[in-house]
């Protein structure tokens, strides 16, 4: 048999071939990257662009992809809603719904609803931490009877679909007289967020060495002190992830809020947005501006904390 080195074909210019291959590889990646950026950004850009157009421009056919005269008038309308003369049946029917820059009467609720969303999300975050951190620490580091069972229990509750909770929740909340309160949202959002919080924190705590826990205990920490003084400072990254997830989940939640809220007292931002979309008299430009307002806070949060979000998702995925 011939020595394998002799089988190399000297007529092929391997160097050229390698160079071409690398170039092709680069081209594919560049194309893919551009395509992906377009896929992710195009719909949002269109929404943002629309929100900067006047009602007259927005209804042009074909559409103006980039506004001729960008205007913040739609946003101004939102922030000053309620200061102007209230929208009544007369003013509404007097204006042309297509070009008139129509502001719905509920527009003045937009800022209060953002405030409601913020309060609900903040309370849910705090309760999640209070409830989730000790539970996760116990599951990860204390060897007690039923440790696996409690983990499975929490995992199972994570699988329950929110729509399956709606009927019983509604009846109970109504009986407690809590319909249309922020409290009803805070309580029910715990069902959607707590299992995930515990799950991520357990993953993280399990990743910290057992010996650290033992060292703390021998150094004189009670279980509670070991958790607070040794584990909490070390788990900052996963705590940030948990806070973000919980906040975004509450901020974005729609179904439960749809059932329990009725007025400005408790309506959250998604509810108000949804009410605009079903109101055919609302002008497109206003609607788009409201949509942009709803998108901006979570997107800023996502961009700032990108690293923590990805690592948190990763931890949550390990045993999903």
């Amino acid at each position: 048999m011939a020595n394998s080195i002799e089988t190399i074909d000297t007529n092929i210019d391997y160097r050229r071939r390698q160079r071409l291959g690398r170039l092709g590889h680069k081209a594919v990646i560049l194309f893919g990257a551009l395509l992906l950026a377009f896929y992710a950004l195009a719909p949002i850009s269109w929404l943002v662009s629309s929100s900067l157009q006047t009602e007259a421009e927005i209804v042009s056919v074909p559409p103006h992809w980039i506004p001729d005269e960008p205007t913040l008038q739609n946003f101004r309308a939102i922030f000053s809603a309620g200061e102007d003369e209230p929208v009544t049946y007369e003013t509404r029917s007097g204006a042309d719904p297509v070009s008139g820059g129509f502001i719905p009467s509920s527009a003045s609720s937009l800022l209060p609803s953002m405030w409601n969303s913020t309060i609900v999300a903040t309370l849910v975050v705090i309760l999640n931490l209070l409830v989730g951190v000790p539970a996760a620490y116990a599951i990860a580091k204390i060897r007690y009877w039923g440790r696996n069972a409690s983990m499975y229990f929490i995992l199972i509750t994570r699988v329950i679909p929110d729509i399956a909770l709606v009927v019983p929740f509604f009846l109970v909340i109504r009986k407690l007289g809590m319909l249309d309160t922020i409290g009803s949202l805070v309580i029910t959002y715990l069902a959607v967020t707590v299992p995930f919080t515990v799950f991520i924190l357990v993953q993280f705590f399990e990743g910290l060495p057992d010996e650290l826990d033992k060292a703390a205990r021998v150094d004189g920490c009670s279980r509670f002190q070991a958790m607070v003084r040794v584990f909490l400072p070390l788990s900052l990254p996963s705590l940030v992830a948990v806070v973000l997830f919980t906040f975004l989940t509450s901020w974005n939640e729609f179904l439960l809020a749809l059932m329990f809220t009725q007025t400005e007292a408790s309506q959250t931002l998604p509810i108000l947005l949804a009410s605009f979309t079903s109101d055919f008299t609302v002008s497109f430009s206003f609607l788009n501006a409201a949509g942009v307002l709803a998108i901006v806070p979570p997107v800023i949060v996502a961009i700032i904390f990108e690293r923590y979000i990805v690592s948190g998702l990763t931890a949550g995925a390990v045993k999903g």
Partner: peptide, 12 residues
């Protein structure tokens, strides 16, 4: 960039 769709509310 690809986190953006993940972050925005479903209603939006």
């Amino acid at each position: 960039i690809i986190l953006i769709p993940w972050a925005i509310p479903y209603v939006a």
